[in-house]
Structure formats: structure tokens, C-alpha cells
Design a protein around this nucleic acid. Structure first.
Lengths: 221, 221
DNA sequence: AAATAAAAAACGGACGTTCATTTTTCTTGA
DNA sequence: TCAAGAAAAATGAACGTCCGTTTTTTATTT
């Protein structure tokens, strides 16, 4: 018979992982000691080993939980997109990606830890088959746009969408984590507009583009 | 009177730094011990301290030297670009960036170490004022293209060029270091063509684009 | 032999992990 | 209702190892 309820145990685990995550992010995996984690989590050193077999196990558990959290946020982001190929939607996605990077920069730092110390073993799936996933997600919308004649011929919409997604991500990561302060010489808002514009030009047919230009920004012509 | 010539001393330093760099990249900064470095460099532990005051000093020296090497490679890349706004040039840049990432993936790993353990102190300058630098580099070419009417109105060529540069870089980093095997669902060659196409559409005027489409790929129309 | 370089040994401390011990918690029997 | 006791949980000292750095010793060169 267990003396602690499952809920109480999970609470302890959460406390430990929160502490460990903060420390890993602040000072790296190797630089963080089990004693650091114990002290921050207000748990004895030995007791850590009642919850995790090794220090690595703590890292892996953090990643798995965090990954789920981020996956859910991404799911919400994409679920809010009705028409993925509308410039407005692209921009909206970029904005939400920016928020995700802002609010969870620690998660991406964990990814770099993973790249360096675990050959990105835990994060590989973030990029694996990315285009295919978007195709599965929005395939019908892509098809509809194509039959409507909204798209340039010879340009695969799923690939453009993926490229836009990646560029938005990279833009904010560079700004947030790499100290590239305004590396595009634009404010975040302006950068979003600009990148959206680029991908819209790359994606849309001339007739469709004409609408975009007219409606959004007359200065562009 | 020194017993070792300056050249001999530099050789030792090079040997030590080569060993340290390999180890840092393979297992990270904190996971690499001075004893590891000594053994790999075939130098005694104590002797390391005749050449470097601390372990950090080794890391900084490596970065500074490597940075110079990469800067020189980048200089060569950009010096080979005559007409930065030609799609062909963009693609060429992308290809060379790909080679740079391939041949020096260790350098970019050092950057991630720097992000995690030194808040990117040593690499900040890689992204700082990037657009300005391209403007300074190719400003006259950009102006010429504008007056020739090659460009879309309302699209700053330096910004497009920077965005293209960043996207090429990011594409290859994801492929090489993050295990995103064919995350755009394209071969590297196809990805280069595709990304070039996107930025060309975003950058060039309709008349100029017509030339591009005709000359490069009739299938696109 | 004097100066420089290299090697080896030693230092104090911190590391991840283990383990004997103590404390807490809940069940049980009266 | 409540002490007894067993099981679970928590503790902190201890272990052996490795760490970055310093100091001492040895080798090499002029």
C-alpha cells in the first residue's frame, strides 16, 4: 500500500522537474548538479533517486513533458488557421510562433542542449516529415486553392508553408536567443509583414496577388 | 632567452586547440576535462597551464581563431557574388552556405555551446546589423537594380537578401545538426532551387521575373 | 649552470550515486 | 478511538571518482 497518493507523487515530480528545468536552462545540463536540483526543489539529495533513476532520467522526463506541452500549443496554433494560404493566415502563424518562442525560450534552449549532448535524440521528431505533416493537416485546403487557381503553378503549397513556418521560427530564435537584435533591421511587426509578403509573392498566382496587394497595402502596388 | 621558437609554441597551441575543439564538439564544454584535452593533445596536464590560464581561455581562443576562419570563408563567398539579386546568385550563395555548414558543422555547435553557457557572448556579432552589412556590401548593386526597374516596388533588396541568407543557413543547420532529414521533402538541390524561387518571386519585378522563368525553368511559367 | 619547458604529483572540492538510518504515513486490531 | 506496527518515504552521511588548478620535480636546451 502506498503511503503517498498518486497525486502527491506527481506533485513531487513536478516540483523536482520545475526546479531542474530552470537550472538546466540557466546553467546547462552538465553544470547543474543533483545537489543544486535537490536544494532548489527543497528535497533531499537522496530522495531524488526515489523518483528518478539517474540525472539523465530527469532530463528526459522534462523533455517529454515539455514536448507534449509545446505540441499542444502548436496544435492550437494550427487549429486556428482556417485558410493556410491566405497571407493573413501566414502572418498570424508567424505571430503565434513568435509568442511561442518568447514564452518558451527555455524549451528551445533544451533543444540545443539535446543537440550538443544527445545528438538531438529527443527533438529529432520536431522536424522529421514536417512538410508531410502540413500536407496531411491542410491538404484539402491546398487542393481547393489549387483548383480555384489561387496558386502559382509549379509551387507546392505544403513546401511554401513549411518554409514560411521555419523562417518565422528561425527569425524569432535568432532575435530571442542569439542576440541578433533587429537583424533584419525591422521591428518584429515589420519583419512579420515583410516575411509574409515574401512568401505570398512566392506562393500566390498573379490574380490572387492583386487582391492581396489591393486589400492589405496599397503602397506596395 | 626562450628555448622554443615562437613557431614551435604556436604549433603547440594549435595542437592543443585542435584537440580541445574536437572534444568540445563531441561532448560539450563542461563534459570535456582538461585531462581529456591533455591526453588527446599528447601534452601533460600541467603543461596546458603554460599555454592557457584557464579552461575558459582555451574555449575563447578556439572561438576567436575559428571565427576568423569562418569570416574569411564568408568573405570569399560574398566576393564571388557579382549580381546579388540574380536568382542564380542567390542559389549559388545557398549552395556555398550549405558547404560551409557541411564542412564546419563543429563551428555551429560551438555557437550553441556559446548560447547555452555564455549567453552567446562570443557569437552575437554574427547576426548584429546583418542587413546593414549586406547593404554596405552590395548597396550599389541594389541601387542599380532598382533604377533598372528589376525590383518589386516596396521591397527592400537588402532585407530580402538577408532573409534568403538566413533561410539557407537555417535549412542546412536543421538538416545537418537537428536531424531533420529532408524536412522540406526535397533533396538539398531541390530545396535550393525551391527557396531561390520563393525569394526571386518576392524580390523581382514582373518583367524581370518573366526573364527568370523563361531562362531557368520553363515548367514553372 | 642558468633558464625554460615538460611532466608528475598533489590539493581541495564537487560530482553522481548508494545506503544505512530516521521520519512519516496509513492500516489494523482491540 | 487510538496506540502499534509495518510499509513507504525521506534523509544526509559516505563512497569512490573526477574535476580545474597549483606546486613540485625532472628534463632539455643554450
Amino acid at each position: 500500500m502506498p503511503k503517498l497518493s498518486r497525486a502527491a507523487k506527481n506533485l513531487r515530480r513536478t516540483t523536482i522537474e520545475d526546479a531542474a528545468r530552470d537550472l538546466f536552462i540557466k546553467q546547462g545540463f552538465h553544470a547543474t548538479s543533483m545537489r543544486d536540483i535537490a536544494k532548489t526543489a527543497e528535497v533531499s539529495l537522496g530522495n531524488l533517486y526515489n523518483y528518478y533513476a539517474t540525472k539523465d532520467a530527469i532530463f528526459e522526463s522534462i523533455i517529454n513533458n515539455y514536448q507534449q506541452q509545446i505540441d499542444e500549443k502548436l496544435r492550437v496554433i494550427f487549429s486556428q488557421i482556417d485558410e493556410p494560404l491566405e497571407p493573413e493566415s501566414l502572418r498570424q502563424m508567424g505571430e503565434m510562433v513568435g509568442n511561442l518562442v518568447d514564452q518558451h525560450s527555455d524549451f528551445w534552449l533544451l533543444m540545443y542542449i539535446d543537440v550538443l549532448e544527445f545528438q538531438n535524440r529527443h527533438f529529432r521528431k520536431m522536424f522529421d516529415g514536417l512538410t508531410d505533416r502540413f500536407q496531411r493537416m491542410f491538404g484539402d485546403k491546398f487542393e481547393q486553392a489549387k483548383t480555384r487557381g489561387d496558386l502559382r503553378t509549379g509551387v507546392d503549397p505544403a513546401t511554401v508553408f513549411t518554409a514560411a513556418y521555419m523562417q518565422f521560427f528561425n527569425y524569432f530564435l535568432v532575435e530571442k536567443l542569439f542576440g541578433g537584435n533587429r537583424h533584419l533591421n525591422l521591428s518584429d511587426d515589420q519583419a512579420l509583414n515583410f516575411l509574409t509578403k515574401i512568401f505570398a509573392y512566392g506562393l500566390l498566382s498573379e490574380t490572387k496577388l492583386a487582391d492581396y496587394k489591393k486589400s492589405v497595402n496599397k503602397a506596395i502596388v
